[in-house]
Write a protein that binds this DNA or RNA. Structure first.
Lengths: 235, 235
DNA sequence: CAGTATCCGATGCGATACTG
DNA sequence: CAGTATCGCATCGGATACTG
């Protein structure tokens, strides 16, 4: 092809030139999910190099998909999707739904990653079913290297900015609910491949603590956006 | 990243690993549009190398998106989308619609290509408004290198297999309609950026021949699938 | 926290030629 | 018609370290 590009006037080709480069779609997914700061994005894209993330953001900005602004408070930069960027939502959803329906679950289960899972859980956790007081939940993955095994979610509806906090170190509060599982099972629950009840019944998931929290876990634990998509392949 | 892959269990990431490789989406677009044979695909993807096309087809086959079969008649191989492949239709449409809405028209107009345009026109031409007898239409691009300037569309509703034939050499029949234009204008019409009437009024398009064919051109000339998508950027 | 700078390696991919 | 074979290069992007 000599120069870059498909050399086609077809809109699919034009758009693919832009969206088809490595990491681009995932950067947009992160922005759609509400990450705004450089290091938030990095958290959602653990294996991207900062140089490449920076490059992608600049490309998307030049394209008019992303707008870089500064927080008037502290002068920190942050990224927002423009209207053109927001309208990529159907694209990302279509890709994700197709992936959930047709890509083998096993494949997904090879890419387990506790910090990514926790970061997603923090994002989608639904505080509504939880009591109004501050709630602390400890998650323990007993099959994960010590440094990544223990996590705390602190939900405080009266909290300052974000309602849900994710900690890797003991925040010090009394723990209301202890969750213990293996990483694989927890990810399967997150992806809608298994319910909380099934996991408990089969001994894959142990809950200790406040009864109300145990009973309502399936509802406060927000699932992956694509969890409801019916799968077509099983292995 | 060392190994290939995003190492994320998110379905968007899983699917992007597959769909994000160069040319893949366009191969699928071609299959969705009804190309089935290797050289048909090459026609719709003029700048892909045969080696890469072959590779992509094998990858997609292994993925279960494409199925390779043989024509029982002549033993010729052909490619079909599986159910999983057909379900990529929403993905391709979402990408194309976004491209049409948000990517600058000018950008598209830099990738003019007469044979690609004619190939698309042949595919989307709507024989319904045309008379039942055999109709021959000659298209002349007066700003294009001689070898690519003259084309014939032969529409025969009683025709053998395909109804619409595209020829690069004079098929010999009497011509019912002569169409003359520049490549840029014709492409703009095809993409829905201009109507036939506007092009005639501004002198960009000349029609000579059967009145009925002239009057109905906007309807028998099928437009790009994305032509109806409202554009948001103008330049 | 929000990036840059630099280096370098793998490999994806394009070009061309050739075959059953 | 339907691909395979081979070659070689550009470049994409990964790793790491460093800065304002």
């Amino acid at each position: 092809m000599t120069d870059w590009g498909y050399k086609q006037f077809c809109p699919v080709a034009m758009a693919s030139e832009v969206l088809g480069t490595r990491w681009t779609i995932l950067v947009i997914r992160e922005l759609l999910c509400g990450s705004h700061h450089f290091n938030d994005l990095r958290r959602g894209l653990p294996h991207i190099s900062p140089a490449l993330l920076s490059k992608r953001l600049r490309e998307l900005e030049e394209l008019g998909v992303v707008s870089r602004q500064r927080d008037p408070e502290n002068g920190n930069p942050f990224y927002r999707l423009t209207d053109a960027g927001e309208e990529l939502h159907p694209v990302v959803m279509a890709i994700g739904c197709w992936g959930q329906r047709w890509l083998e679950a096993q494949l997904s289960m090879k890419n387990l990653d506790p910090s990514l899972l926790m970061w997603d859980m923090r994002r989608n956790l639904d505080p509504d079913p939880l009591p109004s007081r501050k709630v602390t939940i400890q998650i323990l993955y007993h099959d994960v290297t010590p440094g990544q095994a223990k996590w705390w979610l602190v939900i405080d509806k009266a909290g300052a900015d974000g309602i849900v906090d994710l900690c890797r170190k003991d925040p010090g509060h009394d723990v209301d609910l202890y969750v213990a599982s293996d990483l694989r099972s927890m990810t399967a629950i997150w992806m809608g491949l298994m319910t909380v009840a099934e996991a408990i019944d089969s001994g894959k998931l142990q809950l200790t603590g406040a009864l109300q929290l145990k009973a309502s876990m399936q509802s406060w634990l927000g699932l992956s956006t694509f969890a409801s998509e019916p799968k077509q392949v099983d292995t």
